[in-house]
Write a protein that binds this DNA or RNA. Structure first.
Lengths: 148, 148
DNA sequence: TATTGTTATACTCTATAACTATA
DNA sequence: TATAGTTATAGAGTATAACAATA
């Protein structure tokens, strides 16, 4: 055997395979960039969602992020403990709650200059304009797919 | 506050932010597709790497996948237990080992029609040719960035 | 009885630190 | 003493199942 199957498996890979491998690997790199010890990548994603959508119930936030409610419970608890979001009772339904970014949370969202962001930024500046446009378009397509 | 900060935070996001959010979300969806109870996404990535590169030492495989050696130790152990790869002594260095895909592993790589792959495939067929080309180009760019 | 959210629990993925064996 | 790999341990991320409170 040695390497008789050669490298062609990689280059022949379907689009689905190539996209999957790329996403898994970049996700890994992004998570490894965690030098900001307080906010995790998942929490950051929820912050962006709240910043984009405004106040939401935990269930709505879980649905938008594509995770199960218990997973979101933990994210919300961590962000609340760090004072980045507030929780208040739902006006008409005692079972639900409403969470939204606090002033600190909005401040965090604005600054956003985490080390993680800087690493990816530093990679992106080495690309051509056309490559950056490709990534922007791909991000939009991926979001569309992921939301389904 | 309500939603005075509105949705513009999302649309104004930098390219780094948009790419990061897209990658995090698609990664989440892909992991959730795990109905094949035996092979995880990480293991699949290693299988592709071995298929593409041929026999490697554990250290080389870890480096190519961008993970630390202890992480790869576990992936290799899981794949070996499932008979998808074999391990043999390094010909000249008793400290090292050489792992490569078994016949079953190469078979798995060829078939590759996991449910996970099918889900992403089913999403991709709804896109236009131009969109698929964008994703293919983006996957190449992302791999280049992630490898650095 | 159905829905929302939380708690309990478990598994994947990954890391760092400490250890073993070989060079 | 340096290197390759494994073991031990821990934390992030996520899920399902069971539960409590409210509708």
């Amino acid at each position: 055997m040695t390497d008789e199957q050669g490298p062609e498996v990689g280059t022949d890979a379907t689009l689905a395979t190539r996209v999957r491998l790329a996403v898994v690997r970049l996700n890994r790199r992004l998570r490894a960039q965690r030098t900001d010890r307080t906010i995790t990548l998942t929490q950051l994603s929820a912050i962006y969602c709240l910043g984009k959508c405004g106040p939401l119930t935990p269930g709505e936030l879980a649905a938008k992020e594509g995770v199960q409610p218990p997973s979101m419970t933990r994210v919300i608890a961590a962000l609340e403990e760090q004072g980045l979001l507030t929780r208040r009772p739902h006006p008409t339904d005692g079972r639900q709650a409403v969470v939204e970014l606090s002033d600190d949370g909005r401040e965090y969202l604005k600054e956003e200059t985490t080390v993680r962001e800087r690493w990816l930024d530093s990679q992106l500046v080495t690309l051509t304009d056309a490559e950056r446009q490709t990534l922007a378009a791909a991000a939009e397509i991926i979001d569309r797919i992921s939301a389904r």
